[in-house]
Design a binder for these strands. Structure first.
Lengths: 383, 383
DNA sequence: ACAGGGATCT
DNA sequence: AGATCCCTGT
């Protein structure tokens, strides 16, 4: 059976907003015909549960975008999953049920081995209210969506709010955006009927320092866990750039630091998982203000203020932009999807864009309990 | 070609809010049927650019109201316009493009001589972000809207916030307002189904002193420009009040200090027009904190604080009311337009109402970089 | 505390 | 497409 307890129901609620994007992206007056095109980008999804946590993968109905969420077992206040089980969830139903939770409720989800029902319990912090819901589950073909496993040629790390702002702005003008990473920085450009727009973000030194280790925390954490490569870290950091440029393999590992489901890292992951649990408790203590997660008390330079009570990010949002690239990339994407993706800024102050020419864009938000990744196929042969 | 750089994009954004008023003035619950009546008061406008600055004139679609904006070249951080050129702008498009600017961006607009595209560049203060937009221009018949060139019998100078409040309040009751200037002050009265309202503003001594020279700076500046009537100035100032009362002609000139394009006053206008430009600059100068440019150093007594970095006004808003009149006037206007006009309170703390019986009202807001003037025909034979 | 803008729902 | 509600910014 599965039993997972979350300190705050808010996380699930926000996560579902980010997954179950169905918005009427009618910001494109240029193409009102598209406004109704999306309706529901994702309606059903399998929540794959195992002892390491919960993974969700779903492809939008038009098979252009893919969303993958990973919640680590350590991100829960309590997590137990005796055997792998897929929970076939209708996102509309889950959205409704989650609306019945208050943001600060303690939320426990349970499923028995016959996985035909998901049990959700919302408990007020002071325990004077307990709400319980049973949601029917469905049988979804666990078509394992081939997550593209690419070595990206460019990675952009930037404040999620800025990304949100950019795609929202450009969606006022046109329906697609060309993202171009070059030595001068990253450029977002869109052509519309009324106007064309182009935004160039230059890398800042501050951002470079701040984000240099971002996305490689996994390693650090790992290292820390391993406890033996402490002295290695600094080295790694220093050569990181070179790695990206020279060692495709290692560079990619770093670039893909977010990858969760790769076999070869499994062993290590296991360790992490258990440790993380401990950390979790630690965290709670740390989270004096929020539900943030910063697991290890790593040589954390990301001592983040965690402004509101909403975002649980490790990096302040006032960020600046950090660009890493092996080669110039230029890709065109549908803005309506990116606008949807950018709703994840409620989960993290930082976003990473990973790109290589002619392969899907990866938009990744790391948050305290895991990571949400979006993949979007580029438009091809577009003007 | 045209190249104009503004210290803050916010000015343009606010200006467009004031020009492109399309609001559903549904503040009138009394007449919900009117809510949809306006939709778009002004959709397109020509931005007339020449070496002296930028002028915009537009009439609302129902030809009842007219808006005229003058931005002085001196109000820009940089301004260059090699030859006069009209930029035919769709205000909807410009609104969208301006939404893509952050308020504190440095904004540069450029147009080449073929004026088919307006180029807007938004540069973050720290230059790590540069956004560039190209907006298509259109060909608009430069129907030179006959701006009424009246000698006004009454002028009311008051805090713009108070005017905003009054028209908003009265718009809750009825759809028109009678504005009456008499010796006791200025009265705003509206009759509605639910209630009638009447607001009397009496002139205050403080306001008299404060505003005595407001709107007449033009003259001073003019004199300065002319450079030869220096000795005349003090004289003029002293008799100013008398002028208003005795010499209709001269009084009007003063009262009409803002008029820009009048045929018969052209000769005089010419002087005045140029003068105004200078005054503008004066005003800006006073705004020591903003993007001022102050060319001439006038004997400025309006050393005004200019609170925030937003409003660029020469007079504090805590104002009081100053009334000048040659004769009693009483006129009735549509409140929905006045409510729209009053949005310009974001540009200036002070507003001037100029009236004569049976001619359009002139509502004028002067701000650091120029002036925005609204003309509204009175309702006639109304109850 | 109020106003404006954005997002969601009908 | 319009109206209402919520959130953010001033």
């Amino acid at each position: 059976m599965l039993e997972a307890k979350l300190e705050e129901a808010a996380l699930l609620k926000r996560l579902l907003d980010c997954t179950h994007f169905s918005s009427y992206t009618n910001e494109s007056p240029c193409s009102p015909r598209l406004c109704l095109a999306i309706k529901e980008l994702v309606t059903d999804a399998n929540f794959e549960c195992n002892e390491e946590g919960i993974n969700l993968q779903a492809m939008d109905n038009s098979h252009v975008a893919l969303v993958a969420v990973n919640l680590e077992a350590s991100g829960f206040k309590k997590f137990r999953c005796d055997r792998p089980m897929p929970l076939g969830v209708n996102l509309n139903s889950l959205t409704k049920v989650l609306k019945c939770a208050k943001d600060d409720d303690i939320c426990t989800i349970k499923a028995t081995d016959d996985v035909d029902v998901l049990n959700l319990v919302y408990e007020a912090k002071n325990s004077d209210r307990i709400a319980e819901y049973d949601m029917k589950l469905m049988d979804i073909d666990a078509e394992n969506l081939g997550i593209p496993d690419t070595d990206y040629d460019a990675r952009v790390t930037m404040p999620s709010a800025e990304f949100t702002r950019i795609v929202r702005d450009l969606s006022l003008l046109g329906e697609s955006v060309r993202i171009e990473v070059s030595k001068e920085g990253v450029r977002f450009a869109s052509d519309g009927e009324a106007a064309n727009g182009s935004i160039l973000l230059k890398q800042t030194e501050a951002a470079k320092e701040k984000y240099e280790k971002y996305g490689k925390d996994d390693e650090e954490v790992k290292d820390e866990e391993d406890e033996e490569e402490e002295e290695d870290k600094p080295k790694k950091k220093k050569i990181k750039k070179e790695k990206v440029k020279k060692e495709e393999k290692d560079g990619d590992v770093e670039m893909n630091g977010d990858d969760d489901d790769d076999g070869e890292f499994k062993a290590k992951s296991d360790d992490e998982g258990e440790e993380e649990q401990e950390e979790e408790e630690e965290e709670e203590e740390e989270e004096t203000k929020k539900k943030n997660k910063k697991r290890k008390k790593a040589p954390s330079k990301n001592g983040q203020p965690s402004k509101k009570a909403k975002k649980s990010d490790e990096v302040p949002s006032d960020g600046g932009v950090y660009v890493e690239m092996n080669q110039h990339v230029s890709l065109t994407f549908s803005l309506k999807y990116l606008v949807n993706f950018s709703k994840s800024s409620s989960l993290s102050n930082t976003v990473q864009l990973m790109m290589s020419n002619d392969v899907p864009l990866l938009v990744s938000y790391k948050f305290g309990q895991g990571v949400i990744k979006y993949y979007l196929a580029p438009k091809i042969g577009e003007e």
